[in-house]
Nucleic acid binder design. Sequence first.
DNA 1: AAGTTAATACCGACTAGTCGGTTTGTTTTA
DNA 2: TAAAACAAACCGACTAGTCGGTATTAACTT
Lengths: 218, 218
Amino acid sequence: MPMVKKTLKQRIVDASVVLFQQDGYHNVTVDRIVEYIGASKGGFYHNFKSKDELLYEIHDVFISYVIKQSQEAYDKYNTPITRLCAMLQTLTKVFDMYQAHITVFYEESRSLPEEYSEIIHEKRDQYRDILQKVIEEGQQTKDFRTELPCTIVTMAIVGMINWTYKWFKQSGPLTMEEITEVFTDMVLRAIVTEQAMDEAVQFMVKGEPAVETGFINT
Amino acid sequence: MPMVKKTLKQRIVDASVVLFQQDGYHNVTVDRIVEYIGASKGGFYHNFKSKDELLYEIHDVFISYVIKQSQEAYDKYNTPITRLCAMLQTLTKVFDMYQAHITVFYEESRSLPEEYSEIIHEKRDQYRDILQKVIEEGQQTKDFRTELPCTIVTMAIVGMINWTYKWFKQSGPLTMEEITEVFTDMVLRAIVTEQAMDEAVQFMVKGEPAVETGFINT
DNA sequence: AAGTTAATACCGACTAGTCGGTTTGTTTTA
DNA sequence: TAAAACAAACCGACTAGTCGGTATTAACTT
């Protein structure tokens, strides 16, 4: 295992994500970031043109990864149902790992200067388009119900998944695997046609749920 | 129609909600708020102890209204399915009207000082609890599938609904009524048991979807 | 009714502090 | 030895909140 020394730039990004998630972009000063990792302001501005550029970096790393993973999930399978399941799996997994990034992504993008936010918005749309494409193709093959407008279905799924960043706690009683399983079940039941339900049942929840423990946030 | 003159306090709140939604709490200065409505800084601090207190006011007005409406929807009906449908209806309607408030509520609550945020978090949990209660009761009556953990189901629904504030545009091609109908359909199909499906079908989408037009944001 | 006091609502110049960014200086590396 | 990487002191713009003041209305006194 090559224990490579992390560059200052990487340390800045890592620390910033955590701090931004905790307290929000505007409540975290550059001074605090560099103090947190025992560096200096000079080092910061040597690596970043501005605080905004750092924010952009965080956004871009995350959304680029999401797109890459989504596309891979799409390419790996060849039916709408398996593709959808793979994407749900992939996305929740990413959301498990990158929760801090996501929080920053969905709450601080307003602070991005226009030059940056244009790029980010485009990529964010790409992410949605991949999912929407799966839904559309499923409707064409009659795997998915055509009574439901695919834009709304897409956004319903996106909302369900994205919102996890607001309430999921890695230290909480629920694992992301459980959540994924339930989400998948719900989505499939909601949109798969009767004729295609045969293929879908294998991805659904079996048996009784685990004991409900504790409670969680909004 | 009694054309009551709006108080300065109300004008400040109204303007702030719009400005905060657009640019975020930290990107809107007190000076800008008062300039926007043609008032003064003195007037502002006569009505509010601080900028934070104004933010709290906006939060509280919104979440209190949501709780009130949710509770009313619950009380008005007496079966899990009808209650659930009524709550979905109510919530999306509220979200249609109060989109600016919601944006502030879900994106700026971090900036609330602890004294305020405690109260708000409590109320936010109340909102979720009302919905979760409906799901739980539905599972007890076997109207809803017991294989699905009710906390996850609740948060899936909350996420689906809440996320609308991120992408729904009143000027866009989709109306909130359409969206509500599709959401209701999806949720019911996802969680209602076969034996109770008879009661649920009346709330579901009939026929083909409207023509898909344009596209929307994440 | 007139005069007096008091409370409320609002104004706007000013201040103290904060924070992103710069400049200058020092160390490390290739 | 020169350039890259980092450190530390500094600057200027910005902003939440203050404070002395004014206008308006209500309440009380004589």
